[in-house]
Design a protein around this nucleic acid. Sequence first.
DNA 1: ATAGGGTTAG
Length: 435
Amino acid sequence: MIRMYVYNGLPYDVLQLFVEMLVSGRHSPDNFTYPFVIKACGELSLLSLGVTIHGRTFMSGFDSNTFVQNSLLAMYMNCGEKEAARRVFDAMQERSVVSWNTMISGYFRNGCAEEALMVFRWMMDVGVEPDCATVVSVLPACGYLMDLDLGRVVCGLVEEKGLGNKIAVRNSLVDMYAKCSRVEEARVVFDKMDERNVVTWTTMINGYILNGDARNALMLCRLMHFEGVRPNSVTVISLLSACASLHFLSHGRCLHGWAIRGNLESDVIVETALIDMYAKCNYVDLSFRVFSKTSKKRTAPWNAILSGCIHNGLPREAIELFKEMLMEAIDPDGATLNSLLPAYAIIADLQQGTNIHGYLIKSGFLSRIDVATGLIDIYSKSGSLDSAHKIFNGIPKKAKDIVSWSTIIAGYGMHGHGKAAVSLFNQMDISYVFL
DNA sequence: ATAGGGTTAG
């Protein structure tokens, strides 16, 4: 019964049934029950319940069962508790390949790519035989860290051990090469595949875009269409960004059509990408048309329309939209402000600049270096070099970066204070220049 | 019977 709920994706019902089982007291859970229940806790990110059940497995002696331990590893990793997972892993007497794979993918998903590679190397050192899941867990970490050498080692393992039969394994190889800036090698793997799915095509298309080759990305789009593979929302988003960077309006409109036919256009991320594409093609009216149909409960489409207004020389509209956004109680984020602040720098109105300064203090966004830099630019373009310098001085010394220095120096320069600009330039840590 | 496994915007 519990298994049926797991297979049908009903983790909450799994837990309910487990509680009923405990309350009735007629049956006690065993080493087959616990993995299902622990998995349900992980899926729902119910850490405290997971810890309680971990305690129960300990009391009943099932915590030495490898299946139970592996499900605990996965549960802790799903809840972001990598230290707890590591403690379970370290205490394990017997580790299966699943234990190692869970640690590798768990570390990577929790933002610890280095640890993921460390576990993989450790696994190889102790002579554990890798499988398909090992490969698809370790390759994203290689790509993220651009560790091409290790990526090639894994590629060698795939050939040597014959792990390349699954499409997912080849897909992750394509992605790894593309992320390591080896788009030609990615293409070699791609061309050698005798079976490809929508993820394969999307990964290769995205690989070209990542490497600044939007034209080849769009070329591949034709081939994909020709082979009868239907794009999903990820594919459409990648292709829209290619159209945006090339200002290919007609191709972008065609993709908009694909999105509508594929029922993808109500996906917020797709809507956001459409708004962005139309704006970058300088058709912000079309961006507004898409924006008017979005749910407006999410931050992303607002950010896209704000930056679209700036791109199309509409700073006042951007400011109005931001006010509307606050009225609708949508939470702005760092990206919202990075899109908005240039609007104030363009209109160069000191009063309005002071108003937004107040908002940045109240909201706490001023502690972000990029936001503070945006405000320096607003003040210097509005003619208040004093205020600009005060903001600049407010940034801790070691947090100052090349952008904040350039902004304040440009401020002095544009007001004809050449000497002050040069003096500031000389105060700047010269190592920035070479970064 | 039970555990792990690919691509995602601003």
